[in-house]
C-alpha cells in the first residue's frame, strides 16, 4: 500500500503576528514557520500503518512553503520512505510570499497523484492559517475519491481501511472505507514520534529529497481577503498584575468571595 502524506508549514503562533501594509494578509517575511500540527498527526498515523507492514509512506510538500525542506527531512528521519517537493511547472507561477491557498495546493497535489496514484492519502484535518484550509476533502473531490475527516485512527482492513471518525462529546463512528481514499486526521492513535536532531542532520546530508515539477489545472477561486483584524483580547478580561504571590492572592480572593474556597 502506498500512502501519500501532504504536509504544509504554518506560522508559529508563539510569534507576534503582523499584517501586510494593505491589511489584507499576514506579514510572512519575519515569521517562523513550523509544520502544521495536524499534518504531524497525519504523518504519525501513516507511520503507524507502515509499522504494521507492507506500506510505503511518501511525504509531499509544496516547494513554495517556507521551511518545507526541514519538514520533509524530519519526515524522512521519522521513518518516511521518500519525500517529494512539488513545484509548479507553469512558467512564472511562483506564488510569492503570500503562500498558496488550499485550492492551488490541492491542484498541485492532484496533478501529482494523477501521475503517481496513492492507495491512501492522509493529511491533517485542517490548516489553521487558511480561512478555507481543509485540504483532504478538497483533494478527494478533485480526484473523485471517498474521504473521511476528523479521523482519530486508521487501520488496514481487507481492501480498505477502518477509520475512527470523532464527533462531539467523544462519540465516534467506526467506518469502513474502500481504497483508494483520502483521510483527514485529527489525532493519531498515539502522540507523534520524535526524531532526534542528529538523525534529521543525517537525512539532510544524505539528500534524498526529490523535487518534481507538475502542471496543475487552474484552481477554483476561493474566498477573497478583505482585511485582517486582531481580535479584541484586551479590554474583556480584567488583568491581574503584580508578583505571582500578588496575583495568587487576587485569584483566591475572587474564589473566596464566591464561596468557592473556604476561609476568611
Amino acid at each position: 500500500m502506498r500512502i501519500v502524506v501532504p504536509m504544509k508549514s504554518v506560522p508559529d503562533l508563539v510569534e507576534e503576528i503582523e499584517f501586510t501594509a494593505d491589511g489584507t494578509g499576514i506579514e510572512r517575511e519575519q515569521l517562523k514557520f513550523v509544520l502544521n500540527e495536524w499534518d504531524a498527526q497525519a504523518l504519525e498515523e501513516a507511520l503507524l500503518l507502515r509499522d504494521s507492514g507492507g506500506v510505503e509512506v511518501v511525504a509531499v510538500g509544496c516547494a513554495v512553503d517556507p521551511e518545507i525542506d526541514q519538514i520533509l527531512y524530519t519526515a524522512l528521519a521519522k521513518g518516511a520512505d521518500a519525500a517529494v517537493r512539488l513545484a509548479d511547472a507553469r512558467a512564472g507561477s511562483s506564488s510569492g510570499p503570500a503562500g498558496i491557498p488550499v485550492a492551488a495546493r490541492a491542484a498541485l497535489l492532484a496533478a501529482y497523484l494523477e501521475d503517481q496514484p496513492a492507495d491512501l492519502v492522509i493529511s491533517g484535518v485542517q490548516a489553521p492559517d487558511d480561512p478555507d484550509g481543509q485540504l483532504p476533502p478538497t483533494l478527494a473531490a478533485l480526484l473523485g475519491l471517498p474521504h473521511v475527516s476528523v479521523a482519530v485512527g486508521v487501520e488496514a482492513d481487507g481492501d480498505g481501511v477502518t477509520v475512527r471518525q470523532e464527533f462531539a462529546g467523544g462519540l465516534s463512528h467506526e467506518l469502513w472505507v474502500g481504497l483508494p481514499a483520502v483521510i483527514g486526521v485529527q489525532s493519531a492513535r498515539q502522540a507523534p514520534r520524535y526524531a532526534p536532531i542528529s538523525r534529521i542532520r543525517q537525512t539532510m546530508s544524505a539528500g534524498g529529497l526529490g523535487e518534481l515539477a507538475v502542471t496543475p489545472r487552474e484552481p477554483q477561486g476561493g474566498p477573497v481577503p478583505r482585511r485582517m483584524l486582531q481580535p479584541a483580547t484586551t479590554g474583556h478580561a480584567e488583568m491581574l498584575t503584580g508578583s505571582p504571590g500578588d496575583v495568587a492572592d487576587q485569584i483566591v480572593e475572587l474564589l473566596r468571595s464566591r464561596g468557592l474556597v473556604k476561609g476568611e
Binding site: 488550499v102 484535518v125 485542517q126 478555507d132 481543509q134 485540504l135 476533502p137 478538497t138 478527494a140 473531490a141 478533485l142 474521504h147 473521511v148 475527516s149 476528523v150 471518525q165 470523532e166 464527533f167 462531539a168 483527514g184 477554483q220 477561486g221 476561493g222 474566498p223
Partner: peptide
C-alpha cells in the same frame, strides 16, 4: 465541526462555491 470539516471543502469543489 466534524460534519462541516468533512463536507465543506468537498462541496465547495463539487458545487463550485467558495467556502
Amino acid at each position: 465541526a466534524t460534519v462541516g470539516l468533512d463536507l465543506g471543502s468537498a462541496l465547495s469543489v463539487r458545487w463550485e462555491a467558495p467556502l
